[in-house]
Design a protein around this nucleic acid. Structure first.
Lengths: 344, 344
DNA sequence: CTGTTAGCGCGTTCAT
DNA sequence: ATGAACGCGCTAACAG
């Protein structure tokens, strides 16, 4: 019954009202048409509607020993865990496609060391997890180990897996390749001295982008240098401060690459404030290519991500696992594509 | 048991391992220290850890007849329901604070006419709802009626309520006042001909912003005109196309106001493309003041929203309702504040 | 096609 | 301080 003391109809109530047994109602609810005649079904359905009956998910799930929810856990030391458009779109894709299969998505943002205190982990209430990791590699490894001990299906987003584990599946995009695309583009323009700006909080995707960039540059331009600086946050002022500090103490680079478009844009505005022209004096490249990247002028050269598709792929994988017992594939890598702008 | 056939420990297993009755384990789990000796407790806790025991939420919730999750439902006809930074931050605030009270948040984005098909509505599986509405006023009213029939606590976000209902509580910010702040600011600068650009999809917050603006302008500048145009989507190109179409057929307005900063920015860039200078020829004002609004230059004058706080307030309200049986207040209005930029 | 029986895992109640 | 019986609402398995 509800808080206000209003009785809530159960299967029994519906059964009594329709003059059938509870089992028949259950069969109607579950669409077991083989077990119930058309006339009875109609009668039951009318009573369901009339009594405003809604099935108690807890009771059903207990009986059939399964959960009908997937836990989406985002590791972020900032409380604004959905501020990142990438993450938000992953969640949207995941949710939309799980909902189609009558699964719900339970979302939670937690600090990197708080997994054990998560309600979803302390209690058994989701069928599996989708996890967006952050933090230093070693910490991430610890989290993966903790997740492994849960003996539940886990989708790791944007994070490679070190050891195979039948409970785990990785869904990510090819950030490394994205880095190489940027490197090749810049190398073709004679860029030799590269400045890369990344946020202080470690994200696996950022690591891969930088790794791809660094590797490719080393391969194609042997004499080139890549300097990586960190910004305290992804906020406009922090990024500009980090860039300013670096530029004050070092010669001007040929190009600045942001771990994402916001970082690149903030850096570019700082260049403008210094009277440095883009792309003539310094080239600028971002990453992600979301709508907002167009707000900076000149339009920033970038690599386009498809986070909604990542969420959709994650939904597909975990559904497969929950229904067939095994993951279709253990590592799914989605492509990215290069989008030239006016800053290179 | 899990899919792989691994047995999962229950309270019974823990009890047997610790040499006590299931009831004692339950008392330990629920912190009923009065009922269990210190030594026994330690022993039970060790076994809980050793066996990796996790409590079956379904069974507990069924027994105590309650749900420990809140449904966050976002009405959006686009599948990218978290693309809006405002919404995303509401969700973050809501989730963080509900999690502190051991409630989870189940999220879902649905089209305006799909509420009845939502898993959360068909089944009884959340303790209450937080709802972000969109669509025409009449459709929203229908949705509110459907929600009312659920007999569950509902927090309406950014939406005023027509009839009092003890199941409902409204949490919103003062968008209307935000509109008047903009109007006064522009009136003081002699603005007479105003162009307002809004997205085609109706959001109550936008309606209130425009209403506040229109009302205030009518009050302070009797001769002034306010024209509202709609953009097919909030995408950059659509907004620019809408503005272009209007400008081609009408004299230049004194100011353009966007329903949010993105719309304002897109409009402003279009002005730049036409060689119209801001703020000299046309003034530009946005709404929200999120980080991204700084990427447009000149920096856009705006009204700052605090969506995370809205989520937090919603969490507080629904928790109060779930624990005490009544809402503390039925209508919570958070303030906004004006932030002058370089575009006025 | 329909009804009966039994039990999912947990917590309340009452016994010891 | 600890244990036994019972039932929350639902559905699998079987009987009719």
């Amino acid at each position: 019954m509800s808080i206000k003391g209003q009785p809530r109809a159960t299967i029994k109530d519906v059964a009594r009202a329709a003059g059938v047994s509870p089992m028949t109602v259950s069969n109607v609810l579950n669409g077991h048409r083989q077990f119930v005649g058309a006339a009875t079904r109609k009668r039951v359905e009318r009573e369901i509607a009339r009594l405003n009956y809604r099935r108690q998910a807890n009771a059903r799930n207990l009986r059939v020993s399964q959960q009908r929810s997937v836990g989406m856990v985002i590791f972020d030391d900032s409380p604004f865990f959905l501020a990142d458009f990438f993450t938000a779109q992953v969640v949207a894709g995941l949710t939309n496609f799980l909902n189609l299969a009558d699964y719900t998505v339970t979302i939670q943002g937690i600090r990197h060391d708080q997994l054990r205190h998560s309600v979803l982990v302390r209690n058994l209430e989701v069928a599996g997890f989708c996890v967006m990791l952050s933090g230093p590699k070693q910490k991430r490894r610890q989290v993966v180990d903790e997740l492994a001990r849960l003996n539940q299906p886990v989708i790791l987003l944007q994070e490679a897996l070190e050891r195979k584990n039948p409970d785990f599946c990785v869904v990510r995009q090819d950030d490394f390749a994205g880095g190489t695309l940027i490197a090749d583009h810049l190398a073709a323009r004679g860029v030799h001295r590269l400045l890369v700006i990344v946020p202080k909080q470690d994200w696996p995707a950022v690591e891969n982008r930088v790794a791809g960039l660094t590797d490719a540059i080393a391969g194609t331009s042997p004499g080139a240098s890549v300097t990586v600086i960190k910004s305290k946050t992804e906020g406009f002022d922090d990024v500009q401060a980090a860039v300013a500090t670096h530029l004050d103490a070092n010669p001007l680079p040929d190009a600045i690459v942001g771990a994402n478009d916001s970082l690149a844009a903030a850096a570019m505005f700082h260049l403008a404030d210094r009277g440095i022209s883009v792309p003539e004096d310094v080239k600028v490249v971002g990453f992600n290519g979301f709508e907002a990247h167009r707000f900076a002028r000149p339009t920033i050269t970038t690599v386009v991500s498809a986070p909604y598709k990542i969420g959709k792929a994650a939904a597909r994988q975990i559904l497969g696992r929950l229904e067939t017992g095994g993951f279709e594939k253990s590592d799914i890598v989605l492509p990215v594509h290069f989008k030239p702008g006016a800053t290179t």
